[in-house]
């Protein structure tokens, strides 16, 4: 499974280029205080320890900040986590939980941030994992039980944007 051009470009330009030995993007650094919500998701197969952790800070029904931590080995997971952490910030819990992660159409806001070309399936898979992880962190913030992960289809070379033949 090749990394799609859209994922590669986002990762190279918006993540890799801004990280270094002594610098990290805020989305990938831990809070200085204990998070109000936390959840982990095993978003990459094969390693056994590929746990992506989402941490939230919130007040009541509003999430004010979010961070992600992972031994991320997959550029698509980096990208999905980065986009989801930005998206969840300053949102209400109900709005976050309202999205159906298994409905590809519901992932449109994330594909929009990714920016193309196309809507590659490697991004789809990691968006789903990341959204489910963030939603469980919201449930934890609310004091609710987290939900088990549904089966998520493995990524293919499919592009969901049928008009894009690049």
């Amino acid at each position: 499974m090749a990394v799609s051009r859209a994922v590669r470009r986002y990762y190279a330009e918006r993540i890799f280029a801004h990280m270094g030995r002594d610098r990290a993007l805020p989305n990938f650094t831990p809070f200085d205080v204990a998070p109000t919500g936390h959840a982990a998701v095993e978003g990459c197969r094969g390693g056994g320890k590929n746990i992506t952790e989402f941490s939230l800070l919130g007040e009541g029904e509003r999430i004010t900040d979010a961070r992600v931590s992972c031994g991320l080995c997959n550029p698509a997971m980096y990208v999905a986590a980065d986009i989801l952490v930005d998206w969840v910030r300053d949102k209400g819990c109900e709005e976050i939980l309202a999205l159906d992660a298994m409905d590809v159409a519901a992932l449109a806001p994330f594909f929009a941030v990714l920016g193309g070309p196309g809507r590659p399936d490697d991004a789809r898979e990691k968006f789903q994992y990341a959204l489910l992880g963030v939603q469980n962190a919201v449930r934890d913030h609310r004091g609710e039980a987290t939900l088990p992960l549904p089966q998520i289809d493995e990524p293919t070379d499919k592009d969901w944007d049928e008009d894009d033949d690049e």
Binding site: M19, G20, R21, D22, R23, A24, L25, F28, T29, P30, S69, C70, G71, L72
Partner: peptide, 9 residues
């Protein structure tokens, strides 16, 4: 290394 997100890599 948490502050530079390299603890796990």
């Amino acid at each position: 290394f948490d502050r530079t997100d390299s603890a796990k890599n």
